[in-house]
């Protein structure tokens, strides 16, 4: 058997790849899955700080590739979630320090030990992206409800098609339901229409996300956070559970219920 290898990518930077990787990985490990996160963003490592593991790094992925340590030495175990591990990216090197073949090699060694290998891809479509995608069984494409982010997601989808990869699944991150309602933001339907891709989650913009990354505690642990709940739901869907998309209506007050009544 071996692990399912899922790469989280987006094309555009800043849409929430690392946040998504961290939260899905934590949520999966809380569902008793053995998970390893692999930071493929060499030179701009961040998965360590988002998961609160930055002080535990001794070796990184480039050390493994260049033989300064073995794979087990580079694996950082998360104390709070004993089935969650991280292989950090190197911070002082660049994307050319490893190749797609190196990634295939590392992933092949990790596969028997885990249920999920979640790879955090760098932004862009160059070497770093190719490294991250090379070993992927599945790809999750993160986008925001913005023209530039959706356009870049489309480019990624095209590149995956060209490489005969599975089409991937979509996460729409930082959606603001109020703005969608006012017609001032692309809706989830608009985006899936345009990209013709299955959606695996909609994560609403949420004020708990930044405090969570400030303290290195992924937001999915916050029971009050809708974004956190959305990531839990995504983890469940990855496990094949049928979890309907969240109703993102924020205040189902009297008038809204009245409108619903009128509209059936």
């Amino acid at each position: 058997m071996g692990a399912r290898v899922i790469t989280v990518t987006s094309g555009k930077g800043g849409v929430g790849k690392t946040t998504t990787t961290a939260n899905i990985s934590v949520a999966l490990s809380r569902l008793d899955q053995r998970v390893v996160m692999l930071d493929a963003d060499i030179g701009l490592r961040n998965l360590d700080v988002v998961t609160g593991l930055e002080n535990r790094i001794v070796y990184d992925i480039v050390d493994v590739v260049e033989g300064r340590c073995n794979l087990k030495q580079a694996l950082i175990k998360h104390k709070q979630f004993p089935s969650l591990y991280l292989i950090p990216a190197a911070q002082t090197r660049d994307k050319t320090a490893i190749s797609p073949a190196d990634m295939l090699d590392i992933v092949a060694k990790l596969k028997p030990e885990f249920d999920f290998i979640i790879i955090d891809s760098p932004a862009g479509i160059e070497r770093g992206f190719r490294n991250a995608v090379a070993p992927a069984d599945e790809v999750i494409i993160v986008t925001n409800p913005e023209v530039s982010a959706v356009r870049d997601a489309d480019r990624i989808i095209g590149l995956l098609e060209a490489e005969n990869k599975e089409p991937g699944k979509l996460i729409i991150n930082r959606l603001k339901p109020d703005m969608v309602k006012k017609g001032e933001m692309l809706s989830a339907d608009d985006i899936t229409d345009i990209l013709a891709l299955d959606i695996i989650g909609i994560v609403p913009e949420d004020e708990f996300v930044i405090p969570a990354s400030n303290s290195g505690v992924p937001v999915t642990l916050n029971e009050d956070s809708k974004a956190g709940l959305a990531f839990q739901n995504i983890a469940r869907r990855l496990l094949g559970q049928n979890v309907p998309l969240m109703d993102l209506e924020q205040q189902p007050g009297f008038f809204r219920r009245l409108v619903k009544l009128f509209n059936g």
Binding site: V147, R151, D190, I194, L258, V259
Partner: peptide
């Protein structure tokens, strides 16, 4: 708002049509 009417389309619709146009050519 009561009846869920939206007389003039917002910038969301503009975003969608601009995206569709740019992606066709991309």
């Amino acid at each position: 708002r009561m009846f869920g009417k939206n007389n003039k389309p917002g910038t969301g619709a503009t975003a969608k049509s601009r995206l569709e146009f740019v992606l066709v050519h991309d």
